[in-house]
Simulated assay, not measured.
Amino acid sequence: MKTVIVIPARYASTRYPGKPLVELRGPDGISRTLIRRSWDAAQLVPGVEGVYVATDDDRIRAHAEGFGAQVIMTSEACENGTMRCAEAMENAGLDADLIINLQGDAPLTPPWFVFALMEAMATDRSAQMATPVIRVDAQTYANFRADRAAGRVGGTTAVFGAAMQALYFSKEVIPYLPDGTPPPLPVFHHVGVYAYRPAALRAYRNWQAGPLELNEGLEQLRFLENGTPILCVEVEAQGRVFWELNNPIDVGRIEAVLKGKP
Rank of each mutant, 00 (worst) to 15 (best):
residue 147 D to V: 04
residue 92 A to L: 12
residue 150 A to M: 10
residue 67 F to V: 04
residue 74 T to R: 09
residue 139 Q to M: 08
residue 88 A to T: 05
residue 199 A to Y: 05
residue 98 L to W: 08
residue 75 S to A: 04
residue 140 T to I: 11
residue 198 P to K: 14
residue 110 P to S: 06
residue 125 R to A: 07
residue 151 G to P: 11
residue 68 G to K: 10
residue 190 H to S: 14
residue 153 V to K: 15
residue 193 V to D: 01
residue 184 P to A: 05
residue 94 L to F: 07
residue 83 M to C: 04
residue 87 E to C: 01
residue 149 A to L: 13
residue 189 H to P: 02
residue 174 I to K: 02
residue 159 V to E: 10
residue 178 P to G: 00
residue 122 A to R: 11
residue 171 K to G: 14
residue 94 L to A: 05
residue 71 V to D: 11
residue 88 A to Q: 03
residue 154 G to H: 03
residue 182 P to R: 07
residue 187 V to H: 14
residue 67 F to M: 05
residue 142 A to M: 14
residue 185 L to K: 09
residue 132 P to I: 06
residue 111 P to K: 06
residue 114 V to W: 00
residue 94 L to Y: 12
residue 91 N to E: 12
residue 87 E to D: 03
residue 199 A to I: 13
residue 145 R to N: 11
residue 160 F to R: 01
residue 82 T to F: 08
residue 111 P to A: 07
residue 198 P to S: 09
residue 107 P to V: 03
residue 89 M to E: 12
residue 120 A to W: 01
residue 90 E to L: 12
residue 145 R to L: 15
residue 109 T to S: 13
residue 85 C to D: 13
residue 125 R to T: 12
residue 128 Q to N: 09
residue 121 M to L: 12
residue 182 P to Q: 01
residue 68 G to R: 07
residue 186 P to G: 05
residue 173 V to S: 09
residue 196 Y to G: 04
residue 131 T to H: 06
residue 93 G to F: 05
residue 118 M to N: 02
residue 139 Q to Y: 14
residue 153 V to T: 15
residue 144 F to P: 00
residue 90 E to Y: 04
residue 183 P to Q: 13
residue 162 A to F: 06
residue 147 D to I: 05
residue 75 S to C: 01
residue 120 A to I: 04
residue 123 T to A: 08
residue 101 N to H: 15
residue 136 V to H: 10
residue 71 V to K: 10
residue 179 D to K: 15
residue 157 T to W: 01
residue 167 L to E: 12
residue 177 L to F: 02
residue 131 T to M: 14
residue 73 M to R: 13
residue 114 V to L: 00
residue 66 G to K: 04
residue 178 P to L: 14
residue 72 I to M: 05
residue 180 G to Y: 14
residue 194 Y to V: 02
residue 121 M to G: 00
residue 166 A to T: 10
residue 118 M to P: 00
residue 195 A to H: 01
residue 85 C to I: 06
residue 107 P to I: 10
residue 142 A to C: 09
residue 138 A to W: 06
residue 168 Y to K: 02
residue 74 T to L: 00
residue 175 P to A: 01
residue 80 N to M: 03
residue 122 A to C: 04
residue 86 A to M: 07
residue 138 A to P: 02
residue 187 V to T: 10
residue 68 G to A: 11
residue 67 F to R: 03
residue 179 D to P: 15
